Amino acid sequence: MGLKRYAAALAAGIAALGAGAAWAQDYTFKLHHFLSAKAPSHTEMLVPWARAVEENSGGKVKIEIFPAMTLGGRPPELINQVRDGVVDIIWTVNGYTPGLFPRTEVVELPFVYLNDPAATNLALYEMFESDLKEDYQGVEVMFLHVHSGQAIQMRETEVRSPADLEGKKIRIPTRTGAWVLEALGATPVAMPVPDLPQALQKGVVDGALIPFEIIPPLKIQEQTDVQIELADKTRLGTTTFQVSMNKAKWDSLPADVQQAFRDASGPDWLREVGEVWRGTEEFGINMAVASGNTHVTLTEEETEAFRQALEPVVERWIEEVTAKGIDGAALVQKARDLIATHGSM
């Protein structure tokens, strides 16, 4: 190699090393989830959270969000996609992989969760390190949250008592929700939420346990006539979600970048997430009513009938997880106490 060519090659090599060093200051992450880019969970939760992380990092972090499973696969595959490193971060429903997160199911139980997503988010935050972390092998949890709870949305039937659900086919995304339906004499039908509109339209299901916030993005008001909730906006349990990063990816990050994620995911944010979901809930039910649907709120007496019918669901969960070496009774009491404490703040 001639001297000039050697010098040129050396200069190119040094330039490449310099570019590599500059690139190493930037961290790009792919966040994959199952709802559309128009869903409130995308526009009002995931996008603001990603932007907050980027800002906290001083420009070192970029989070690219891929909604509606645009990177491939189906919603139940998200947890394995992030564990296997196919994507960096996911937002998913814990219940899409039944039994994988048994401890965290405690807040999903009927009348453990009542009607306050912010209080429940904060309870999850407090319980994570001491009680829940073992559920999350292979991932680093950014934050856990719940939605506003399982309202009853029906194609035709006005539900005012457990008997009104007997024999009905009802969609639910979680096994705890399936137990609720079994206790009420209904038939649970598991499916990811994007499949619900077609299932309602074709009569595959008679209704769904799902919050009102999903009405606008999936146009549920067009496939249902009746939306039902219990007294004081009480719901038949809730669903837990996680935003989690691949564990190896997390461990490779410098402390300041990790802190950028942590600072965006603390108690203030979890309280805000609860308020976001509650706000979108009001928007959803108002849209259904404006479309001519009937909004039913049960009386205290009618609600008590559901409470009595569903107490065995809590006992069933305690018995099952206790057999796995988990103190289910203690988790139920702790969750109830923390939700009550944060709900009174």
Rank of each mutant, 00 (worst) to 15 (best):
V321N: 02
S148M: 07
G328Q: 04
E126S: 11
W250E: 14
A39E: 08
V205P: 06
S130I: 00
L100S: 08
T280M: 09
G207H: 05
E275P: 01
G284C: 05
D268W: 06
V139D: 06
V82T: 15
L71P: 01
T240G: 00
Y125C: 00
V106S: 07
A7V: 14
N246M: 11
E158M: 05
E275Y: 12
L253F: 08
K202L: 15
T239Y: 05
R316N: 13
L310I: 07
L17H: 08
D135P: 00
S291I: 11
Q223N: 14
G85S: 13
M245W: 09
V257N: 10
G328R: 10
E302V: 11
G207R: 03
I79S: 01
A15H: 08
F66V: 09
G99L: 05
D26Y: 13
F101Y: 15
A264S: 12
T70M: 11
E320V: 02
M45T: 07
A208R: 05
D232G: 02
P67T: 10
G292L: 13
R74S: 12
K247I: 03
F101K: 00
I339D: 03
Q258D: 01
A8R: 14
L132E: 08
E182S: 03
Y96C: 07
G167P: 08
A178M: 06
I215A: 03
T240C: 09
Q81D: 14
H342I: 07
V141L: 07
Y136M: 06
V276W: 10
V93S: 14
V47R: 00
K202D: 12
A22M: 14
V332M: 07
T294F: 04
G73A: 03
F34E: 12
G325W: 04
A335Y: 05
I318C: 06
L196C: 02
A39C: 06
L109R: 03
D195S: 13
L3V: 12
R160M: 05
E158R: 12
V86F: 11
L109F: 11
M142S: 12
T224G: 00
N56R: 05
V289S: 11
A12G: 09
S252H: 10
T70W: 11
A12R: 14
N286E: 15
P67W: 07
M69P: 03
G284H: 06
E182V: 00
L236C: 09
R175G: 02
I220H: 01
K324M: 12
A309V: 01
L253I: 06
K334C: 10
H33L: 11
P117H: 08
G18S: 14
L310V: 02
Q333C: 02
K334Y: 06
V296N: 02
L230V: 04
T187H: 09
T224A: 13
V107P: 08
L3I: 13
